[in-house]
Design a binder for these strands. Structure first.
Lengths: 217, 217
DNA sequence: TAGATTGTTAATCGATTAACAATC
DNA sequence: TAGATTGTTAATCGATTAACAATC
C-alpha cells in the first residue's frame, strides 16, 4: 500500500471533525488552522499537514469553510451514512451504551445487543430486546453488521471477539480490560478507564500525610 | 525537567502491568520481553527500552519475574496505594461508572458522585448517595480528591472542569465529547467511544448494496 | 495594495528497531 | 558449557515544526 496515510493522522481527524461540528452548531462559517489548533492543543502546521494528505480544503488568506471541511472529513472517515453496530454484553456498561444518544447523533445506530445470561435475554433496553448470544453469529450476518462493541468480562472477551469476526464484524471497540488477538484485517480500539487513570497517576504527587490504604491481595 | 520519560512510554506501562496481572493470576512466575510483546502486539525491543528508563528489572538468560516487575510498575505508576476519585454526572454513564467493580479491584475508590439535577440529588447509587454539585468545591477539599471523572453533557464539561480544578483535582478523565482547556499542571485524558469508532470506519469498506440512510440534519 | 493564511518543503526532533556484548 | 535473554548502543525510521512562496 504505497503512500498510505499514517494511522496517527487518521486518529486526529475525528477530533478536527468534533471541533468543526461544534463551530457549525454555533453558527461559525469559517475557521483557520490556527484557531482549530488552539482549540485542540495542536500546532497549526500539524493540522495543515494532516489535511494535505487528502487534498486542499482551504483558501489562502481566509482559511477553511467550516461546513465544507466538515463534509470532507465525514467523507474521508466514511461516516456520511449510518453504520449499524452491535453491542455484546448487557450489564451496566452495555445498558449505558445502548442508551447513549451520542451514537445516533453521530451516525451510528445500535441495532442489537447480546448477552449470554438466560436471565437477561429478552429483557428490554430502550427500544431493543436483549438477544441470546448463541444466536449471535446468525444475527450478525442477517443484519450485515460490520462494527461491534465488546462490553463483557475480560475472561469472555477473546471468545466473543472471535465469534464477532466469524460473523463478519471488521471493527471492534473493546471495553474489556484485556488485549485481544485479532487478524490484521480487523480494526480494534480499546477503552479502559483504569488504564487512562493509571497513566495520569504517574504525574501526580502523593502529598497527603495519611495515604489511603492499599487493597490487600 | 531533564531526562524526563516520554509520555508515550508512560502510556504503555499500564498495558504491561495489565498483562503481568493476568499472568500472575494464572500462576505464571517468569516472563520475557518477547512473550510480553507477543501478547501486546509490541516489539520486545520496545518493551526493554521502555523499562530501561526506570532501572534494570530482568535477568539475562531468564527474563523477568512476573511478581517483581508487577510491583515495580505499580510503584512507578504510583498505584500501590488507593486513590480516591470523584465522578461528576449521575446519568446512565455515571451510574455505570459508580457501579464498575474494576476501579476498586485496581486500587481506585469512587468516593463520591455529584449531579446538578435536584431530582437526582440524594438518590442512591450502590453504596453512595448522589451529592449536590453546588457543594462540590467544598466536598472535594474535605475528601482531598485529586482525580475526577467527568460524565456530564458536553455543554457543561468546561465549567465542571474548572470547578474540579479549583477544588484541588489534578487529573481528569473526561467522557464528555469535547476538548477541554486546562492548565499545564493538570493531567487530562479523553474517552469518547464515537471518536474511537470514527477512526476505524476509515479502514472499513462500504461494500453492501443498500447503504443505510444517513441521519438528516 | 496590505494583511492573512494556505499548502509544502526541508530541517529538526523524537521514537522504534536491529544488533550485540554481557551474563545468567 | 551452550542457550537464552537482558540492557544498551547506534542506525533507521517516521512525525513534527519552522519557514516561506503562493495567493486569496
Amino acid at each position: 500500500m504505497p503512500n498510505s496515510v499514517p494511522n496517527i493522522v487518521i486518529h486526529r481527524l475525528p477530533f478536527y471533525l468534533r471541533a468543526l461540528e461544534m463551530m457549525a452548531e454555533n453558527g461559525q462559517v469559517v475557521t483557520s488552522s490556527q484557531e482549530l489548533g488552539d482549540r485542540l492543543g495542536i500546532s497549526s502546521a500539524q493540522i495543515r499537514k494532516d489535511l494535505s494528505h487528502f487534498g486542499e480544503f482551504g483558501k489562502q488568506g481566509t482559511g477553511y469553510e467550516v461546513d465544507y471541511l466538515r463534509q470532507q472529513l465525514r467523507r474521508i472517515l466514511k461516516i456520511e451514512a449510518l453504520w449499524g453496530i452491535a453491542i455484546v454484553g448487557a450489564g451496566d456498561l452495555g445498558h449505558a451504551l445502548v442508551n447513549y444518544a451520542g451514537f445516533r447523533e453521530r451516525n451510528f445506530l445500535v441495532e442489537t445487543v447480546f448477552d449470554m445470561d438466560p436471565k437477561k435475554v429478552g429483557t428490554p433496553i430502550g427500544s431493543l430486546k436483549v438477544e441470546d448470544q448463541s444466536q449471535m453469529l446468525q444475527r450478525l450476518k442477517e443484519l450485515d453488521i460490520k462494527i461491534a462493541i465488546i462490553a463483557v468480562p475480560a475472561r469472555n472477551a477473546q471468545t466473543v471477539a472471535e465469534l464477532l469476526i466469524e460473523g463478519g464484524v471488521r471493527a471492534i471497540l473493546n471495553y474489556a480490560p484485556i488485549t485481544l488477538n485479532v487478524p490484521d484485517e480487523v480494526c480494534i480500539e480499546y477503552i479502559d478507564p483504569v488504564i487512562a487513570l493509571q497513566s495520569m497517576t504517574y504525574y501526580l504527587e502523593r502529598e497527603s500525610m495519611e495515604q489511603k490504604r492499599a487493597v490487600s491481595e
